[in-house]
């Protein structure tokens, strides 16, 4: 099943390159580590075979459409005199969440729709390495083998099968729109409405008291080492200069002092309010497993309730924070 999906994917990529519809394909290839994949940039037909797609393709590739992150690889491969426009046409492999991010990037005028060919791909969720590691007591995995609803993990002196539903990312388990919202071609079968039960993303924290919630975040945020992997992995954090990097005025202290760190995370969440597509890239990128999810989920829920908007579903939408309705609820204002 996975294999044929990959073959279909390679065919599609090859076709796009041979027909010169794109100059570059952004996809996934194998990483030397088991359970991991790595983003790859393919310009030539001969390299198409390194493309893969499986449970480990966790990166949100839309990040690479940002201007700041792809100045170099956006340069056209072909002679600029041949191409009328000095722009690189990009083919990008997109899971549902990547596609939602691409929609947002187009809406926010960060990329031009006509420069991008979206290869939508059927995705049933990706592995949460932390969950896997927790369930295997941190033992190193050397090999894995996905079966129907199980994954078999092998290490130096163990073999263990884990239920797929236990080790998928939370953002995948609660993904309400598992099919790409935009695509030029689609690989595989649509998955929405299929076997898995989807629940609305929820956070148990809402039932706690103010003090308990504060304690929870105090614990989580103190793990942050300020490496900004969350920000840099986020497809929608594309400011040329992040507010946390501003020096005049310097809004944020640079240490891991709690209030500075937390202010950074809150600010980032507020900046992505109504834009966050819930892909979970920030959470997977974190080397110290800070649980940022509740912040994002809470905001997106509020946005949906108040303004009836879910990010990344339609190219005709107006981002909620860039518009208003005269009748917006204002129960909190005196």
């Amino acid at each position: 099943m996975m294999r044929s999906l990959e073959n279909e994917l390679k065919e599609c990529a090859r076709k796009l390159l041979t027909e010169k519809k794109v100059d570059l394909i952004i996809g996934y290839s194998k990483s030397p580590l088991p359970l991991r994949s790595t983003p790859c940039f393919i310009r030539e037909e001969k390299d198409v075979d390194s493309l893969i797609f499986d449970l480990t393709c966790s990166n949100n590739l839309a990040t690479y459409l940002q201007k700041s992150k792809c100045a170099e690889h956006r340069k056209p491969n072909t002679d600029p005199t041949v191409r009328m426009e000095n722009r690189c046409k990009i083919g990008i492999i997109a899971k549902a969440c990547d596609a939602r991010s691409i929609v947002q990037l187009i809406l926010e005028k960060q990329v031009k729709k006509e420069d991008i060919t979206v290869i939508g791909i059927a995705c049933t969720g990706i592995l949460d390495l932390k969950k896997v590691s927790d369930r295997l007591n941190g033992k190193e995995i050397l090999n894995y083998n996905p079966q129907d609803d199980e994954v078999l993990f092998e290490g130096k002196d163990f073999k263990k099968a884990l239920k797929l539903s236990d080790i998928l990312c939370d953002s995948c388990k609660t993904c309400l729109n598992p099919d790409p919202s935009v695509y030029d071609s689609f690989i595989g079968e649509p998955v929405s409405g299929a076997k898995t039960e989807k629940q609305e993303p929820m956070t148990e924290l809402e039932n706690l008291s103010f003090g308990e919630r504060w304690e929870y975040f105090e614990h989580e945020i103190s793990k942050c080492i300020r490496c900004y992997a969350c920000r840099n992995a986020c497809p929608l954090c594309y400011c040329e200069e992040c507010v946390v990097d501003r020096t005049n005025p310097q809004w944020f202290g640079k240490s891991t002092e709690f209030s500075d760190t937390f202010t950074f995370h809150i600010t980032r969440m507020l900046d992505t309010a109504g834009r966050c597509v819930g892909c979970g890239a920030c959470i997977r990128a974190c080397p110290t497993h800070v649980d940022l999810a509740p912040l994002g989920i809470k905001i997106e829920k509020e946005i949906k309730e108040r303004f009836g908007y879910t990010a990344g579903l339609s190219l005709d939408a107006t981002p909620p924070m860039a518009t208003f309705n005269e009748d917006d609820k204002e129960e909190f204002i005196m």
């Binding site: 790595t38 983003p39 790859c40 940039f41 990040t63 690479y64 992150k69 170099e72 690889h73 080492i225 300020r226 490496c227 900004y228 992997a229 920000r231 840099n232 992995a233 990128a285 080397p287």
Partner: peptide, 13 residues
């Protein structure tokens, strides 16, 4: 460097 996101996970760890 294509795929590098310029975060400091590598250097801080």
């Amino acid at each position: 460097a294509y795929k590098c996101l310029s975060c400091a996970a590598c250097s801080y760890l």
